[in-house]
Amino acid sequence: MKWVKMLLVSKVGLIGVIIIILFTFTAIFAPLIVPHDPTEVNLGKSSLPPIWLDGGESTYLLGTDNLGRDVFSRIIYGSQISMLVGVCSVLVAGLIGIPVGLISGYYGGLVDSLLMRIVDSQIAIPSILLALVILGFMNPTLLTIIFVIGVSSWIAYARVVRSEVLSLKEREYVKAAKTMGVRHSFIMTRHLLPNVFSSIIVISTINVATSIITESSLSFLGLGPQSISWGSILSEGRDYLATNWWVATFPGIAITVTVLGIILFGDWLRDVLDPRTEV
């Protein structure tokens, strides 16, 4: 109840939550919302403008692309893939980054400096560049895209978790547990992990937003998934930008609004959970 109240007080957070709920809702119920099959090619209806312009047809709300596919339906379906990519790649990043941060911070010494060299190496390469290089050898499918975005964004977790663990392990109860001979893995998962959880949540929220943008950027560079994602609709539509501007414009707006919602929500979460972290 306290949370709901806090949410209602912060208008910004509320807007963020509403956008995210809408986004999730469309992703889940996509098949029920769409007026057309998003993959249905209808060459007779190609390049129709949005409904409010001359020549627009009533069932094609946002117009059609050059193959006569309904842009609105494609964007609605695209939300599924964008959400999947956003959430799953964050899971991958977390699964790599959190253990690395825990181990590195907890054990210190040689393990720490070795892991941190790897982290340093990756910081030195812009994540989009890393993703490009990796995707060069993997077929860009949904799974590989998720994997690649995850792999190129795990360091944020590793660094934050490590620095928090460094200070946490000086606390009395951790030291006490150590002297009592509690297993290291137990200390890490039961004593340290819960305490870094709020930071992890904050990073994850922002990361979902960046992952959605990264996916669209990769699509733009011709290395996106073959499935219908906002990025791939946008990138297919860009060549027709000046004639059929609606094909590339609306998925761009969809990305921007969704990412905006996630950022707003993330800001609010940070204020509520952990005022210290500035991402």
């Binding site: 993959t39 090619v41 060459l43 050059n66 193959l67 860009p140 011709g222 073959q226 297919e236």
Partner: peptide, 16 residues
Amino acid sequence: SDRYLKSKEVNETIAA
């Protein structure tokens, strides 16, 4: 992918 003119659209149409 991304090699021949409109390969994506052409092949999606062929599949249909």
